[in-house]
Design a protein around this nucleic acid. Structure first.
Ligand code: FES
Ligand code: FES
Lengths: 161, 161
DNA sequence: TTTATTACGGATATTATTTATCCTTAAGGA
DNA sequence: TCCTTAAGGATAAATAATATCCGTAATAAA
């Protein structure tokens, strides 16, 4: 079980957009070249973010994407779910119903004990992702990479047309 | 991203084995019929449990599988990892290295800030699975299904040859 | 007004993974 | 000796991930 590579791409794109001056847009082309990933395919990920309402797009020259909300109001979970969908990692196919000793309809209203545990773990994962925002990601990154390099990246993106 | 259906099968098989009297073995055939899943394919999952050291197998008539340890000493994580492997759900392909503004080798020793957050969530998921054992699963199931039905299932499995 | 640029979405191709079946081998019990 | 069983390799089918291509409409700049 592995998350799609789009998740890594989308998170990095969101991180980049979070560092931009207000109101500036960056195109798919610029984001793709900056991250070294295929433009057409990255586009699908960005469309996912867009339809989830996390980013806003605009057409035409100097168009592209910007965040729809403040970085502090967008969580990792928001982005991961925009790419992966809202489904759980564990899906129960109700194999307990095949048990030859089980009366039909037996506690069908209650999820299976196995599923309850698996879904609790899923929820722990989600909770962990929900509590980190793009703003906090930015703080973490600022500790790793010097301010002048971050500024250079910003400039590269804004002037790459 | 979705766990394999084998995970559900393996967990249910383990739960069943945990409820059996000490020293009794149950065959793949019986487990497959009990759960209504294809025998040959379930066999692969059981082989996974076996090579992970979670169950012990024996050959010949009245052969099959039993747990290798007490139910209290086998966690959900043990079983999930036996099927899914030990890998993380988020894999970092180091797209930061493609950043045209980044000096080569820049903090390559430290994982990317994005990966750190994703891996922390992975760890939360694992921790959640690690802290529930088959014994605890058994307690949860005993609350859902009456003792006589559990006994009937046990008998069905032990006499199905 | 024209032109270049862009997001969007559908169609399609390629590759990898999951799911499943089949068959041979060797071990163990009756 | 014969039947049952786990183990494991080979292979096939179905599904999902990865990727490319192209047409359309919107938009800003020239
Ligand atoms: S029946 Fe699906 S997890 Fe138990
Ligand atoms: S480079 Fe892989 S998560 Fe940042």
């Amino acid at each position: 079980m592995q998350l799609k590579n789009q998740v890594e791409w989308a998170l990095h794109c969101a991180a980049v957009l979070a560092g931009l001056p207000e109101g500036r847009y960056v195109s798919t082309k610029a984001l793709a070249e900056f991250h070294g990933v295929p433009k057409e395919y990255l586009s699908k990920a960005l469309q996912g973010l867009s339809s989830a309402g996390l980013v806003v797009s605009t057409l035409g020259p100097s168009g592209g994407y910007r965040l729809a909300r403040a970085p502090g109001d967008i969580s990792f979970l928001d982005i991961v779910e925009a790419i992966e969908g809202p489904g759980r990692t564990f899906v129960c196919t109700e194999i307990r119903r095949n048990n030859p000793c089980r009366p039909a309809g037996m506690c069908d209203d209650r999820p299976c004990g196995v599923a309850r545990v698996m879904w609790a773990a899923d929820e722990a994962w989600r909770a962990s992702l929900r509590q980190v925002s793009l703003a906090e990601l930015g703080e973490g990154i600022a500790e790793d990479v010097p301010a002048d390099l971050l500024a250079a990246g910003r400039d590269w993106l804004l002037n790459s047309r």
